[in-house]
């Protein structure tokens, strides 16, 4: 094969739903023989922690389908009209929505975030943690999985400048 393609991704979001795109695209790109680096910044940084605790947030997310991952097919097809006053204010709603989404992913054969992250590491994707975010939110390097490198905007841009694909997620 000729020149290897390169992809530079910024992962800036840390909810369960938004944790998927960077890891899906990075692992697939690496499987397609591309050199990939992901720069984890702001709310994306906790995705590098040994145990990922990402939740999904139905609050302020009107496009999120509210469907049940169990019961008869017709029941599963119902998109429940949950009023904002419930999704924004009922204690524990986020936790329930998160476990329902995880169950849905499992039912549909979608890998967990941790599995995808492991595969990224296995396929040689470089994971870069943002130093400034670590300072601001109080993270230490030993909280992260092994193999994470630390850098700043210039570290990312130096690679992104010559990358064939650049994505901000």
């Amino acid at each position: 094969m000729g020149d290897r393609k390169t992809m530079a991704i910024i992962a800036s979001k840390g909810t369960l739903d938004w944790a998927y795109p960077p890891f899906i695209l990075a692992s697939t790109a690496a499987a397609m023989d591309m050199d990939v680096k992901i720069f984890f910044t702001f709310y994306g940084l906790p995705l590098l922690k040994k145990k990922i605790k990402a939740k999904v947030s139905p609050a302020g997310n009107p496009s999120m389908p509210m469907k049940m991952p169990f019961g008869p097919k017709a029941f599963q097809g119902i998109d429940w009209p949950i009023p904002n006053v419930v999704s924004n204010n009922v204690p524990g709603f986020e936790t329930v929505a998160t476990s329902l989404m995880k169950k849905t992913f499992k039912n549909k054969g979608v890998a967990t975030i941790t599995e995808l992250r492991d595969m990224c590491a296995q396929l040689g994707v470089e994971l870069i943690g943002c130093q400034m975010t670590m300072d601001v939110f109080g993270f230490e390097l030993d909280e992260f999985i092994d193999g994470v490198t630390i850098g700043g905007a210039a570290t990312f841009l130096e690679f992104a400048a010559d990358a064939d694909l650049q994505l901000f997620i």
Partner: peptide, 15 residues
């Protein structure tokens, strides 16, 4: 069987 995107590609690549 049963795996969803991108697992079939990743598993195929590794195999």
């Amino acid at each position: 069987s049963g795996m969803n995107c991108p697992l079939p590609i990743l598993k195929t690549k590794m195999k």
